[in-house]
Amino acid sequence: MAQVATRAPRSAAGQPKKSRIVLLLLLPGMIYLGLFFITPFASLITTSLQAPVLGGGIGQYQPGLEFGNYGFVVNEYMEQIVRSFVYATIATLLALAFSYPIAYFIGVRARKHPVLQGLMLTLVIAPFFISFLLRTFAWKELFGQDSWISNLLRDSAILAQDQYLLGTPIVVIFGLTYNFIPFMTLPLYTNLERLDTSLLEAGSDLYAKPTSTFWKVTFPLSLPGITSGTLLTFIPIAGDYVTASRSFLGSPNTAMLGNVIESNYLRIQDYPSASALSVMLMAAIVVLVSIYIRRTGTEDLL
């Protein structure tokens, strides 16, 4: 009691000083954000409003307020914009469907066997140690015309003789799912690892079927994990430009928003269009994510 009593006045007196220290501690972070987030972002916005130099060569633009750039890119690339979000949604749902049982098994069932748990977590993370590009290239080989996967599918008549896998939306979505599965599994695992199993026992004691225990207890409790997992997969997938590119698993038919931005920025050197698309991609993701978080009721994550 005495300690508390002596402490109280001191902290009250020290308040302004403390907040100054807090500000000082925050300063590096603020400078970092200002330099590496606000500055490039504002530069992106100004670039997206640039107008071409009259009679200028390729890649020559001047500062302007060309809001029409946004309308132009929406018209021009609607197909790829829609495709990006469709692919991202499907791949995220698939990743969730694959990851949940894995995370549940590692986090809940394997709790009594720490060695097994560690081993399985390693298996999930191990692909991280190999470059993303190399892994995608390996899949390109595996889906090739004469690969055992293609031959197996052809022999079992799932794939017609003159059909192929590479460059199709199915393979691209597969690649996206595969590349981002660890980002889904890990947050789910950290969440399910803390799941109180006595709640599950209570459920069965109250004569709930395993399925209703899952939907009424386990699932709602794991929502924060699902939310962070889906955000960590959906956002990078929507902007991914490697998997769907012509050099990897895709073809012109599977071009996503990332590929459009790359092409505009590096090939045509249409910087305003590329920037307008980037700004829109960011805005669309922010809107989608905030709606999503509101609906899943996990605002406290933010």
Partner: peptide, 19 residues
């Protein structure tokens, strides 16, 4: 010329993007 380079390569890139 630079005008042609712009229009030609834009048209070509549209094919590459499946547009």
């Amino acid at each position: 010329n630079s005008q042609e380079e712009q229009t030609f390569s834009t048209a070509w890139q549209r094919i590459l993007l499946g547009a």
